[in-house]
Write a protein that binds this DNA or RNA. Sequence first.
DNA 1: CAGCTGCGTGCAATCGATTTCTGGCCGAAA
DNA 2: TTTCGGCCAGAAATCGATTGCACGCAGCTG
Lengths: 329, 329
Amino acid sequence: MPTIYDVAREAGVSAATVSRVLNGARTVDPAMVARVLTAVRELGYRPNAVARNLRRSRTTLWAVIISDIGNPFFTATVRGIEDVAQQAGYSVVLCNSDEDPAKEETYVAAALSEQMAGVIIASSGSAKAAKSLLDSPIPVVAIDRQLPRGEVDTVVVDNEAGARTATRHLLDAGYRRIACVTGPEGVSTADLRLRGYTAALSEQQPPGEPLVARTDFREQGGYDAMAALLSSPERPDAVFVANNLMTVGALRCLADHEVRVPGEMGVVGFDEIPWADLVRPSLTTVAQPTYELGRMAARLLVDRIATPAGRPATVVLPAELRARQSSAR
Amino acid sequence: MPTIYDVAREAGVSAATVSRVLNGARTVDPAMVARVLTAVRELGYRPNAVARNLRRSRTTLWAVIISDIGNPFFTATVRGIEDVAQQAGYSVVLCNSDEDPAKEETYVAAALSEQMAGVIIASSGSAKAAKSLLDSPIPVVAIDRQLPRGEVDTVVVDNEAGARTATRHLLDAGYRRIACVTGPEGVSTADLRLRGYTAALSEQQPPGEPLVARTDFREQGGYDAMAALLSSPERPDAVFVANNLMTVGALRCLADHEVRVPGEMGVVGFDEIPWADLVRPSLTTVAQPTYELGRMAARLLVDRIATPAGRPATVVLPAELRARQSSAR
DNA sequence: CAGCTGCGTGCAATCGATTTCTGGCCGAAA
DNA sequence: TTTCGGCCAGAAATCGATTGCACGCAGCTG
């Protein structure tokens, strides 16, 4: 790999001049510019970003740390991030923590060591990772989930309201014994969606009694939780599932047990699924503005890089019920 | 951010000693080791990877460039890559080219500039990106799709055989007028799957006549292609769709036009879909060993980093038909 | 006791760029 | 004609780590 010195020699100028041509280029003789550019082309020179980053002590990479790359919610969000990032001159690298705090810590450490320009993170709940980020000067935006004890820019949807709407929708449809399958304690989305569910129940006359299953946010967890609910003595007639992958698991479980949906069991899932309307029965969901969420997070990050100081903002986007067949009585 | 010199001063040793403690640490006095580690902890020192990478002229990051982050095929593959990478001491950063050659070139340029340790790429067809990679000393493994004119390690599935099996399956089920929806010309998966399809047709007595629609590998493309086939004068009674997202589009189109599947239209899609068995009718697919594909690619990359010279290997993994309802007559 | 071996440490060079500083040259003004 | 100012290019410092080399000291051998 040729270096800037090779180019300088080839063009008969100094390395400083080559650098000026390739960057600022304000005060360089046009003849020299031409010579340098020719040399660059001939040698196939490509600036070493590592050296540049070291000297400038900044980079043009964003780390986006998400908790599950298999979840369409995150991949859709990433699209929104990418579009803004690219326009602002940044490249996005994606890190998949797979809901594993240890992996998350590894990626956070890498992002800090590599002096990334910024981090967007959907926390899988690692307090250590959160602390590392907050202690560092690197700009951070939290998405989807609150960062543990973190005073940072945050973009979330109104989880509580969405869950409440979903649960009330089931109540309105005539279901009486509604269960909730939610995610790990301490993960803000899991807790807030649960709170929305219980709020809707307690608003009933007479108040409904909560029936809660906690599991991870993954498909197998949803399957197992649903199976447990089916064989429970207080078997529910409907279920509100707090994330899309768990919803898929629940549906698969219901199919395996030949439980008719929505006849014997109404189902509403939080998070949209790309195939929600192709499934039979089609699936009622609480949809989030994923792309917009990504865009918003990226914009906050751009602003935060520009002005590191200042009060962190929290943006709450609305979630929207998409009523389909799985919740119709 | 404290530097290695701050740590050295705090511990009363030289920077060289700090470096040795944090790396080799073979020939360092245990008392010094303790002093250094204490200083590191107290200052919250974190080595600057940019400086280290510059000095060592290598990094521990792999760039995985995929062509569509919304495609479950790629996300599953990434999991396999990650597991091997982590064990070998590398971190994986994901780059989403979104089937856009320009984006792909940007990410390839970034990977080269950042001196990444290796690249795994599912090419979206940019010859320029391929050339940059091949001209560089950076180890490369191509997955899913052949790299344009590229003599590099490659892991693919047997696309032609898979497509042939799928098409023959439709023929065996009694369908007579079978169309094929495939991807862009020049993308190896698109071309090979098409070839498998035509091969199966020509093996018939009398030979079947191909009916081909080319589009991109995305959902909307599949929808549009299906719509065109439906209104064509030679409307098919079955369709083989060469990738999962296009299959979803085709199914949505069929649902919108109230075409009964499999009664009026048999459907087989290449690539598994996580929800294939939840859709009604459930979807017949050609499944690929995605996780294994990722593992294999990562292993090849590890080997190639260890021994840069040597003949590139091509690994072909089998694809497997999963017959479900959408292709049953 | 002199000299050799070898361990442990620090000095300084190095990676490849950017950027500040310095100096030469040229033109304009006095 | 001399002096001053401005412009442009090169020399050299710098970013923060790693690492080859040299040196000092201790222990062992002859």
